[in-house]
């Protein structure tokens, strides 16, 4: 396992440098133009929902097709259904223990901190911080789009990154948001593995990290190295950045976990299903 991870890490780092190499070259030459292009070509289609890159448009209709076709409820075949919507959970005891732990961590630590932070920091600033961290994760999305062969989306990610980092002042603003073509679905390594045929393996619910699977946590480990925030030195500063990101994120979500719990009969099982369903929809896009 460790060996594989190592190999993967190296592969990803190599790929990263390869791509950043191309990126800076290509970026310097082609990007101002491509930003302009994206802006211009976007105006007429903006009213439509399908206003996204033609590549995603092609993908969107099968997706809409999928959403519209309701295979699930019309099949009487329970076995088929079980196969479709469950994941092995061999470590349920451990997972449930972590779930309990994170639940307590949320109510005792994360929520009070986030609420305090929300009361002190104005909303605009919090949105800025959120944008900043989202922008930093551009390498993850870029590399994984390339690994999945999504050229257009990769280009869009790169354009968005350059646009937001400059016009958006280091990514604190998100001017690219207004241009649907510049907002492809975010990709990560877990999804890349899935696209290449790897299954979840089994479900994992980890302390602090939360819901994941063998495949997705492996992917997240790879993605971690692509995130510039992970490379901040010393380690304490990097962890602090992670903490700020987390608290900032939750400052917008206070109450959501509570409602989620309220709505469920078995929150653990509900969460597992939401996670699996969410990942499936992301992989399909």
């Amino acid at each position: 396992m460790k060996y594989y991870l190592n190999q993967f890490g190296i592969l990803i780092i190599v790929l990263f440098f390869l791509f950043t190499g191309c990126a800076s070259q290509k970026g310097a030459a082609a990007n101002p133009a491509s930003v302009k292009l994206a802006l211009n070509s976007n105006q007429p289609v903006q009213t439509g929902v399908l206003a996204s890159a033609s590549e995603t448009q092609e993908q969107l209709s099968p997706e809409e097709e999928m959403l519209l076709t309701d295979d699930w409820a019309d099949s009487d075949d329970e076995d088929n259904e079980a196969e479709l919507y469950s994941i092995p959970d061999p470590f349920e005891k451990f997972n449930r223990a972590s779930f309990y732990l994170n639940d307590k961590l949320y109510f005792w630590v994360l929520r009070p901190l986030s609420a305090g932070y929300r009361d002190v920091v104005p909303q605009k600033a919090r949105i800025g911080v959120s944008n900043f961290f989202q922008n930093l994760k551009a390498p993850i999305r870029l590399v994984n789009n390339i690994l999945q062969g999504k050229g257009r989306a990769a280009e869009a990610e790169l354009t968005k990154f350059l646009y937001n980092s400059t016009v958006g002042i280091l990514g604190f603003a998100n001017p690219a948001k207004k241009h649907p073509k510049l907002n492809p679905d975010p990709e990560d390594l877990g999804q890349t593995f899935a696209v290449h045929g790897l299954g979840h393996g089994f479900y994992l619910y980890l302390p602090i990290i939360g819901p994941s699977s063998l495949r997705d946590i492996t992917g997240a480990t790879g993605d971690y190295f692509l995130n510039p925030a992970s490379h901040i030195q010393p380690l304490e500063a990097s962890l602090a950045a992670g903490g700020v990101r987390q608290i900032n994120t939750f400052s917008f979500l206070i109450g959501d976990y509570e409602s989620f719990k309220e709505a469920a009969l078995d929150p653990y099982e509900s969460m597992r299903d939401v996670y699996i369903q969410l990942r499936e929809t992301k992989i399909k896009r």
Binding site: A73, L265, E269, S270
Partner: peptide, 22 residues
């Protein structure tokens, strides 16, 4: 008859999973 959140997370499916195991 169903609500999908985040482009495909079905609320009904989610309850179905819970009720099935109960």
């Amino acid at each position: 008859y169903d609500v999908l959140v985040e482009n495909g997370v079905s609320i009904i499916k989610n309850y179905h999973i819970q009720f099935k195991s109960i």
